[in-house]
């Protein structure tokens, strides 16, 4: 019985070939995330616990809207509003329907923003958070409609608004309708503000274009994540316009603080407690 044990194997090692793989080795979707800064693989569940900060290099990864909500509100207090408002294709723009479908699959969300109410440090507020996986948080008509509804709801119920903003700007595929959202949301922000209610915005990487030129810059208190790109024109557009390379650090959150357009840079671990304090300061 043991005879065969010390014999040379009859099959040569080369014949134990692994089955062929198409392209590069992969892991199942969403199990792991590659840190864009250090290229290391991080298990997604671990990322959620580390507030989407890379455990290896401390890079701030972009936080999906729903995780952002969980990070921000007291556990179990988030209650979603206006979830049924979704994007149409008002211009029947080429490839847009497919891109919308893909954005929905990639993010698991119906639109680039989620809205609702919750508590932070036991204080009630209205909240919205934008999703990097949904066309980089771009603002279509449904995005504008949801945020407008939220400010109207908050004004009606005397609630402060906390906005976690991340967006590439207005959504080109909805043409003039996305541009009009800038004015529409601004109107709702103004009416909320005129009731003496607080609006705090937290700007994450990236916040640009029509979102910067509307509700990102309309908050009473504007906070930003370390290193976040914040600007009106994107860096490439500026470089093309002025035909020069931009200086390092240009349009980063720290630069905006220096120029007077952002109040404070807030590390992720301190965001929730700062929100709670700010709500407490403005409690009515």
């Amino acid at each position: 019985m043991l005879n065969g044990l010390f014999k040379k194997p009859k099959i040569k090692l080369e014949e134990y070939k692994l089955p062929p793989i198409d392209g590069r080795p992969t892991v199942p979707d969403n199990t792991c995330t590659v840190c864009p800064a250090c290229r290391r693989l991080v298990v997604t569940v671990d990322l959620e616990e580390s507030l989407y900060i890379c455990p290896a290099c401390s890079h701030y990864l972009r936080v999906p809207a729903r995780q952002r909500m969980e990070q921000t509100v007291d556990k179990g207090t988030f209650s979603e509003l206006f979830a049924n408002i979704t994007s149409q294709n008002p211009l029947t723009f080429p490839q847009y329907a497919q891109r919308l479908e893909k954005a929905k699959r990639d993010s698991g969300e119906e639109e680039s923003v989620i809205c609702g109410t919750g508590q932070i440090g036991g204080l009630s507020c209205a909240l919205f958070a934008m999703d990097p996986r949904f066309l980089m948080g771009s603002m279509g008509a449904a995005t504008g409609e949801k945020i407008t509804c939220l400010f109207e709801y908050a004004a009606e119920h005397n609630l402060p608004v906390v906005g976690c903003i991340l967006s590439g700007g207005a959504r080109m595929q909805e043409g003039i309708f996305s541009l009009m959202q800038m004015a529409k949301v601004s109107g709702a922000v103004k009416r909320h503000s005129d009731k003496g209610l607080l609006y705090v915005a937290l700007l994450a990487d990236p916040t640009t274009g029509g979102v910067t030129a509307s509700f990102a810059m309309q908050a009473d208190i504007i906070l930003a994540e370390p290193g976040a790109l914040i600007g009106f024109a994107g860096p490439r557009v500026i470089e093309q316009t002025i035909r020069k390379k931009l200086p390092p650090g240009f349009q980063r959150a720290e630069f905006l603080v220096e120029k007077g357009f952002v109040d404070r840079i807030v590390p992720r671990a301190e965001q929730r407690s700062l929100f709670a304090k700010l709500l407490l300061f403005h409690k009515r």
Binding site: M182, A183, S186, G187, V189, K190, S193, T212, A213, S214, F215, A216, M217, Q218, G231, F232, A233, V237, I238, T241, I242, L246, F250, Q251, K259, G260, F261
Partner: peptide
């Protein structure tokens, strides 16, 4: 709106945002 260095430094986004809100 102009896409230049100075425009960004002086808050192009903020200037437009303020007009939208105030004009409303």
């Amino acid at each position: 709106a102009y896409c230049g260095l100075g425009a960004e430094e002086r808050g192009q986004g903020q200037a437009i945002a303020e007009n939208l809100m105030e004009m409303m």
